[in-house]
Design a protein around this nucleic acid. Structure first.
Lengths: 165, 165
DNA sequence: ACTTTAAGTCAGCCTTGTTGACTTTCCAAG
DNA sequence: CTTGGAAAGTCAACAAGGCTGACTTAAAGT
């Protein structure tokens, strides 16, 4: 692998404080931009970021159970329920009793749910696509590598659970 | 600039929906991990993420004015003030009357403020450093490129305002 | 029959964001 | 030198979305 280090070193990166701080700030600003577009859309529909996250992962894994969604989102049952309830009442999400295990509720998006999810996702993907095109394929690979390394083993497991590319 | 056209093109990016969604999820999970370590520390001190952000940027640009900080953080005056007040009361931040313009308050960290900032930052930098080392220098460059492209011109301006690497 | 798991609910709390209205202090331009 | 606007700060009220704790119901598992 590309080496930059002194003699014999694997890859001595010059990780100055400054560089790391710039990375931290880049995360901060980029995340803000990253959520800004869907946030605008959500507001028009009277929803918040929490609703978006639920819609996203239900769309990704149709039929997932509440417990799984809980683990993926990393929030409490009570917190999720508030959000999930409105989505179900509004007819965006459907909760079907599990076939093998009748205690489980398997979550699905309705047509309306899929429509909103698509709109939200499209806003977000638009920005992501633009950034990818501006930065180029090499950069994209690096971007993903760093993010995956940053999330640590536990979250990486959840990350990989999601329908693969 | 990098082309994506078919024959002879630089590098055709296969920006499938799936890839973009994976990128979105990577941001989601990575950001969670990214804030988790300082969050733990903050909790012990009775502060929240908002305090961290204020400390970070005051440390970065000692003597910045409230208006500037407002712009950088992207929150309302009232929201910032609540946080800033406690930090000042607790002796972590000092607010000095501007020399040229006496309406301004220039913000500085006290010794105690610097100490906490260092601890918080160190937690965060630790994770960042590990991710960087795991991914390698090439990946790091790409990571930054994509994030910068993602934040858009307005935030990028603020980003660059911060003390350069 | 008993225990555990999945889901859901009620109540209450906290942080951090928002609006809107208003004051004080100070600079700067007319 | 007055007056308009900018910088800071404050009060009040509200909402989203986290949290804990306690408890119920239904269905599995043992």
């Amino acid at each position: 692998m590309a080496d930059s280090g002194s003699p014999g070193g694997e890859t001595l990166l010059f990780l100055t404080d400054e560089q790391l701080r710039k990375g931290i700030e880049a995360m901060f600003f980029a995340y803000r931009a990253f959520t800004a577009d869907p946030d605008r859309l959500l507001e028009e529909h009277g929803y918040g970021r929490a609703h978006h996250r639920a819609l996203h992962f239900i769309n990704r894994q149709p039929g997932l159970t509440v417990t799984t969604l809980l683990a993926v989102l990393g929030v409490t049952k009570q917190s999720l329920n508030r959000v999930l309830r409105t989505l179900i009442e509004d007819g965006l999400v459907e909760s079907r009793v599990g076939k093998r295990d009748k205690r489980e509720r398997r979550l699905h998006l309705t047509e309306a749910g899929e429509a909103l999810e698509r709109a939200l996702s499209e806003a977000q993907r638009g920005r992501m696509r633009a950034a990818y095109r501006a930065a180029g394929p090499q950069a994209v690979a690096g971007f993903r590598q760093v993010l995956e390394a940053m999330m640590g083993p536990d979250l990486h497991k959840l990350y990989q659970m999601m329908k693969d590319e």
